[in-house]
């Protein structure tokens, strides 16, 4: 899968999930149907391009579409 295709797939799949805005890295790898190392390259680039953003609890990290979700609204609002 080339990068643009992967990007489309991530955006469309994640925006369809109702009520869920944070995803584990594994969820993204599954959507991309890629091995973790290959998926990581794509996901890193998506973060660089600000399509995705990190969310961290301190112990665990998750990914979300940039600006999506309650947390983003609350944090931006501060």
């Amino acid at each position: 899968m080339d990068y643009e295709e992967a990007k489309e797939k991530i955006i469309s799949t994640l925006s369809k999930k109702k009520g869920k805005t944070k995803f584990y890295f594994n969820d993204l790898a599954k959507i991309l149907e890629a091995k973790p190392r290959d998926a990581k390259k794509i996901v890193n680039r998506l973060v660089q391009e600000e399509v995705l953003e990190f969310w961290s609890s301190g112990s665990t990290s998750m990914y979300g579409l940039k600006g999506a979700g309650k947390q983003a609204a609350a944090e931006e609002g501060d």
Binding site: V47, Q48, F54, W55, S56, S57, G58, S61, G64, A72
Partner: peptide, 15 residues
């Protein structure tokens, strides 16, 4: 606890 804050390009180091 937790949030989207961080420095650009890094997914860790900021909590």
């Amino acid at each position: 606890h937790g949030g989207i804050v961080g420095v650009f390009g890094y997914g860790g180091g900021v909590i």
